[in-house]
């Protein structure tokens, strides 16, 4: 059984985030990038199935600029067998539906039975690509998996995270697309041996023309979902900020908590 994990390179959480000059996205110059956290769990879910002999091959795919190849190398070093990098300058600014179309074209003929991705990316937080792709492929999907079990060669049982600590259990007929919630497993790290072995693994780079796609249909210029602006969040009513030595602050806090809540 062949499997695919969709991954994304995103800015690391501790990067210095600043708005770009046009106020439409963040300034990328000062950022450090890494593999989207959610995707680590998606990759781990497939590597576990491979360890158990239920999946024969794990392929990692990303759509992104040159720098995004590093997350594919991370996947290969962690245990993925090969990688596909869809790279085309015209794709910058593509919207989620376009990206799903690009991914569909890039995996045509591969015959993946299980396609996994993180629930969302830590940058845009859209959480759309997995189910969009499923619908374009006309295959079933489930999001926010906290449990996953291959029942036999034809069905996968997914436990989806619901509110208030409950799980919705659903059986999907393969091929299927599943996005995972963080915490579903404990992602492994690349070993030194894995890093060495990754150097011999293939990263196939494909451009739009290789996929028979037209930038006018799927590229940034064709995007219908468009960011008008990005801004720092309003401070809301904003907290009153207490200043001073710790013991003084603590006494002030106790006073306010007592006045406002009566719990002390």
């Amino acid at each position: 059984m062949k499997s695919l994990v969709l991954v994304k390179q995103v800015p690391s959480a501790d990067s210095p985030f600043r708005l770009n000059s046009s106020g439409t996205w963040i300034e990328e110059g000062n950022l450090t990038f890494g593999l989207n956290d959610y995707d680590r769990y998606a990759l781990e879910a497939l590597l576990k199935l491979k360890d158990a002999g239920k999946v024969a091959e794990v392929v990692a795919l990303t759509v992104g600029p040159e720098r995004a190849a590093t997350v594919l190398r991370t996947c290969l070093a962690t245990g993925a067998d090969r990688a596909i990098h869809v790279k085309d300058a015209a794709l910058e600014g593509s919207d989620p539906l376009s990206l799903a179309k690009v991914i569909k074209a890039a995996i045509q003929g591969e015959g993946f039975s299980l396609i996994m991705a993180g629930l969302q990316a830590d940058d845009d937080n859209y959480g759309q690509i997995g189910p969009l792709l499923a619908r374009l492929l006309d295959r079933p999907s489930a999001t926010a998996a906290m449990g996953l079990e291959l029942r036999d060669g034809t069905t996968v049982r997914v436990e989806r995270e619901m509110e208030n600590n409950r799980l919705l259990v659903v059986d999907l007929t393969l091929p299927a697309v599943i996005t995972v919630q963080t915490g579903i497993n404990e992602p492994r790290y690349a070993s030194l041996k894995g890093i060495m072995a990754a150097k011999k693994k293939e990263i196939r780079t494909v451009a739009l023309k290789d996929l028979g796609l037209d930038a006018a249909e799927v590229g940034g210029r064709a995007a219908r979902l468009r960011t008008v602006r990005l801004a720092s969040p309003p401070k809301g009513k904003g907290a009153e900020i207490l200043k001073g030595p710790a013991d003084e602050i603590a006494r002030e806090l106790v006073k306010r908590i007592r006045e406002k809540t009566g719990v002390i």
Partner: peptide, 12 residues
């Protein structure tokens, strides 16, 4: 967007 760091305004 960016886990609450920014407010994003979208046109569809």
């Amino acid at each position: 967007a960016f886990n609450g760091k920014f407010v994003q305004v979208i046109d569809l």
